[in-house]
């Protein structure tokens, strides 16, 4: 997993509420049993005026040359709602998105971001408006997202601090595989399991025929 400490990049505004994971990656774009090869289908319904022919939709922000190389998205409330498909985050990450600022995220999408080194930044609704204004024009303004200091530095020089749970912050900074981290607690897990099943034998299916 790629570590996240600090990035400086172009930010693209897509400030609509309830952008669901079907929009981020339509199901038909999830063609293989793989976490790869998904960025081409990112926002396919909005990005292409003809999805089959892959004709770019000129009005879609990421098709504007000024936003080439975008690594930050500024979006509306409840981003990533809907289907749990992690493909949404895989597609975003593969496209190059490293951080997303939204007033709120769906819980599953948020966890999926953390699992994949993408930083979800919870930002007040009014501040989303400010960020979006500064993101107009794309390459004219570079944003810096600093996870160590929990700050966004806008092109105007304004700073915005954000909160994130220490667990998530550390996972992103370390970039360690979460399964490896948990496997270090194997003994504790086994002890917990033994006492849970001991007290509640009905939980255990191994005794079933």
């Amino acid at each position: 997993m790629e570590k996240f400490t600090r990035i400086s990049a172009i930010a693209a505004p897509i400030v609509r509420e309830n952008i669901d994971t079907d929009i981020i990656i339509p199901s038909r774009e999830m063609k293989h049993v793989s976490k790869k090869g998904l960025s081409d289908g990112l926002f396919a319904g909005w990005r292409y005026s003809d999805m089959d022919a892959r004709t770019p939709e000129p009005d879609f922000v990421l098709n504007d040359p000024a936003y080439l190389g975008t690594q930050i998205l500024i979006v509306g409330e409840n981003f990533g709602c809907g289907s749990s498909r992690e493909h949404a985050v895989w597609a975003l990450a593969e496209y190059g998105i490293r951080a997303i600022a939204a007033p709120s995220f769906s819980a599953i999408f948020r966890s999926n971001c953390i699992q994949n080194g993408v930083l979800p930044i919870a930002v007040d609704k009014t501040e989303i408006g400010r960020l979006a204004e500064q993101a107009v024009g794309g390459s004219n303004g570079i944003f810096t997202v600093d996870l160590l200091e929990q700050k966004i530095l806008m092109p105007s020089g304004e700073k915005l601090t954000f909160d994130i749970s220490q667990q998530d912050r550390q996972s992103l900074i370390d970039g360690l595989d979460p399964i490896d981290r948990t496997l270090q607690l194997s003994d504790q897990i086994s002890a917990f399991e033994a006492s849970r099943i001991g007290a509640n034998p009905w939980v255990d299916l191994r005794v079933k025929p």
């Binding site: 992690e86 819980a107 599953i108 999926n112 994949n116 667990q167 948990t182 194997s186 897990i189 399991e193």
Partner: peptide
């Protein structure tokens, strides 16, 4: 009972646990 992503499913299968933030 709650919905998760594929990587978390991998985690749950491999460790019988999941990290979660209490809602």
């Amino acid at each position: 009972a709650w919905g998760i992503g594929s990587t978390e499913a991998e985690h749950a299968l491999a460790t019988s646990t999941l990290r979660a933030i209490k809602p």
